[in-house]
Computed example of a mutant assay.
Amino acid sequence: MRRLVLVRHARTSAVRQAAFPVDEPLDDRGRADAAALAGSFRADEVLASPARRARETCAALGLDAVVEDPVLAECDFGAWAGRSLAEVHEDDPAGVAAWMADPDAAPHGGESLRAFAARVAGWLNGQAGRDGAAVVITHGGVVKAAVAHALGAPVEATWRIDVTPLRTTELHAHDGRWTVSRVNA
């Protein structure tokens, strides 16, 4: 059996501002919140996005022997990176509308929701055949896409899943099939 505990990285300025992320550090609150949870996560292995905010979350949580995996990176938001959704909507309302309605749209020049979800699904399918427990420090989008895939939900369901910084989502694989044990706990 494979057990994954997916943890969204701690808070950053982009999280606070509802902005599309860049490779930003944790903010002071994020560092303190993660440090308060140090020692809370134990597993056979620790996997993480290579993003700075994920690495800093691992450090603040006291996690070591971390294996970074680029597949665990957040969606590539292209030209929208570093900007708030409100700013982008003001400049390109048609692009935002297309992005929200069409999982194949990528008006920002980065990944479409479908391409991003396929990347996460491929990683999750590979994890399903493994044994042991892993803590995975990653991004809200990755967690949402993983939950949607585990449930066999359409890619558009990704928009309907909420993931808060430092909250856990737990998935179990039995005979290559995923079950969702908890979300955003």
Rank of each mutant, 00 (worst) to 15 (best):
C75N: 10
T168E: 13
A106R: 11
D28P: 04
D27H: 06
G95T: 09
L166H: 05
G122D: 11
A101W: 00
D131G: 13
G176H: 10
A94N: 07
A115F: 07
I161N: 09
F116C: 04
A18E: 08
V142G: 10
S181V: 12
E111R: 05
D33V: 08
A153L: 12
E74H: 04
D64Q: 14
L72M: 08
G122V: 02
R16Q: 13
F41D: 09
G132A: 10
L6P: 04
A94V: 12
A14M: 05
K144T: 00
V15M: 10
I161P: 11
E156M: 14
R177G: 00
A148K: 04
H174N: 07
C58H: 01
E170F: 06
D64S: 12
R53F: 05
S112L: 07
C75E: 09
H9P: 03
L72S: 09
N184D: 15
T168K: 03
W178N: 00
L151P: 05
H174T: 09
H149S: 08
D76C: 05
I161H: 11
A133M: 04
R3Q: 12
L151Q: 11
R2C: 08
E45D: 13
T169N: 14
R177H: 11
E170V: 14
D92T: 01
V142A: 06
A117D: 03
R8N: 03
L171F: 05
A94T: 08
R29I: 13
A94M: 06
A60S: 03
A81N: 07
V180S: 14
D104G: 12
D27T: 06
P21C: 04
Q127R: 15
R83P: 08
H149G: 02
A98E: 15
D104K: 01
L124Y: 02
D33A: 14
D91R: 08
L63I: 01
Q17F: 04
F20W: 10
F41Y: 15
S112T: 09
G110M: 07
S181K: 10
W80K: 07
W159E: 01
G129D: 06
L37M: 14
T164N: 14
R3K: 06
A134R: 13
S40V: 02
A98N: 05
A98D: 14
T57K: 02
R182L: 12
V96A: 07
R83K: 09
W123H: 09
V163R: 14
A134F: 03
G126A: 09
S84C: 04
D92E: 12
A73V: 11
V66F: 02
W123F: 12
P70L: 05
A48F: 12
V66Y: 04
L4E: 05
A43I: 08
F20V: 04
D64V: 09
V183H: 06
R11H: 11
L37S: 01
V180C: 15
V15K: 09
A105K: 01
I137G: 00
A150E: 02
V88P: 13
V5T: 14
V46F: 04
Q17A: 12
S181H: 13
A134N: 07
